[in-house]
Design a binder for these strands. Structure first.
Lengths: 107, 107
DNA sequence: ATATATCATCGTAATATTGCAATATTAAAA
DNA sequence: TTTTAATATTGCAATATTACGATGATATAT
């Protein structure tokens, strides 16, 4: 008990839920908001911008990275990354498909 | 510690995160998938369709109701509800705006 | 009125998420 | 090589979520 019963749902359902989970925290929305509005790659200063402790930001960034929404170099002292536009567009498409799939006029 | 620091983020950021949270579980995606594909209102049988216990479905439905994604009659033996198309479209617009807001070519 | 069917609520166990202090790692600078 | 600056990892406490059995409420059917 307690854990999500992933296996009883379809792959697309799980994938969309997974993507939504990444967006399901205001810090991650704020991070994505900020990065996507930059002209160039992001190198540091997210901690100041967002206002959470460095380990917390690091964790949130990791969640975003895990689904492939960021690309760049993730090694060394100064990271340098930005939005992975391909994945970004893919997610946009997934969400839009989900919302477009409506077929009723009732109640 | 432990609780999301809602107050340090903007209203739109919190609202989008809140909406995403509702979509962040495959059961709720499955429920919305199912309801949105019906021709008419839904009256019962979600428990069989999804495959989770009745109280669990009830909880998930409640999460969906809380952000206004369902409308209909929620009293009596046989409920009768369907997607709230206005809210549905609004969310579609919110997500789409978020994803459209991208401004970079780098890395 | 009583039984039945259906959904909601309560209580609780299991698991996941959030947040941060402390510490480790890493690469460039001095 | 030793600092230094920046990010990652670890460990843990607080909180939230998920799931379901038991029970309660409600409306229809008998």
């Amino acid at each position: 008990m307690g854990a999500t019963k992933t296996h009883i749902f379809s792959i697309p359902q799980n994938e969309l839920a997974q993507a939504a989970k990444v967006l399901a925290h205001p810090a991650r929305i704020a991070i994505l908001d900020y990065i996507s509005k930059q002209e160039n790659c992001i190198c540091t200063d997210l901690v100041d911008v967002i206002g959470l402790a460095q380990p917390t930001i690091s964790q949130h960034l990791n969640e975003i990275k895990k689904i492939g929404l960021l690309k760049g170099t993730f090694e060394g002292k100064n990271l340098c990354y930005c939005i992975n536009k391909e994945k970004w567009t893919e997610l946009q498409f997934f969400f839009n498909s989900f919302f477009s799939n409506i077929n009723q006029n009732c109640c």
